[in-house]
Computed example of a mutant assay.
Amino acid sequence: MKAVWMGVVAASALLMVGTAQANADLAKASGCMNCHTVDKKLVGPALKDIAAKYKDDAGAQAKLEEKVKKGSTGVWGPIAMPPNSNVSDANIKTLVSFILSLK
């Protein structure tokens, strides 16, 4: 029985790593990584900093989906984030969920 649980835990860990990589790949393919990195400021804020800023905001998912889709200015400084109308709503939802999951 212990071996079964260890297998389940190992499989879950691999699935989580695979999902995180898929989300990082989606962020890159969507153009997010042209201005953002996961852990340091580039043109825009680090994705982890965005997650930290919105961690206690119950409406963060919807707010950030709107900002990604329509663009944003003045939240993180003078450089505007352009709209991402070429990214599907489903992918925006996935990307924002990924960002908010970062610690």
Rank of each mutant, 00 (worst) to 15 (best):
G44N: 03
A52R: 05
S88R: 10
V43E: 13
K53V: 08
N86W: 10
F98R: 04
S101E: 06
A10T: 05
A20G: 07
Q21D: 13
A13K: 07
K41H: 07
V87P: 01
P78W: 15
M81S: 04
S97T: 11
T94K: 15
K40H: 11
A13L: 13
T19R: 15
G7V: 06
L95V: 01
K2Y: 10
S30M: 02
L64I: 06
G59W: 09
K70G: 01
E65M: 04
S30L: 00
V8C: 14
N23C: 15
G7C: 07
I99E: 03
G18A: 03
D49K: 09
Q61S: 13
A3V: 12
W76K: 02
K63F: 02
A52L: 06
A24T: 09
W76C: 03
S97G: 11
A22Y: 10
K69W: 07
A58R: 14
A13D: 08
A46P: 04
S30K: 02
L47V: 03
D56S: 13
D39K: 04
N86G: 11
V43G: 09
D25Q: 14
I79N: 12
C35T: 04
G71I: 07
V9F: 13
A10Q: 03
D39W: 05
N86E: 12
A24Y: 12
H36K: 00
A52Q: 06
S85M: 09
L26D: 08
V68I: 15
C32A: 09
D57P: 05
K70A: 01
I79H: 11
K55G: 03
A20C: 07
A11I: 11
K70F: 00
G7A: 08
K67G: 00
P83Y: 09
A10R: 03
P82R: 00
K55T: 05
I50A: 05
G44Y: 03
D56L: 09
D89E: 10
S85L: 09
L14G: 15
A3G: 08
V68D: 02
K53F: 10
L100A: 00
C32N: 06
K67D: 03
K48D: 07
L100Q: 03
V96M: 01
D89K: 04
T73G: 06
M33Y: 09
K28F: 12
G71H: 08
D89R: 02
I99Y: 00
P45K: 08
L15Q: 11
M81N: 03
V87H: 05
A90I: 14
K70Y: 01
V96L: 05
A60G: 10
V4A: 14
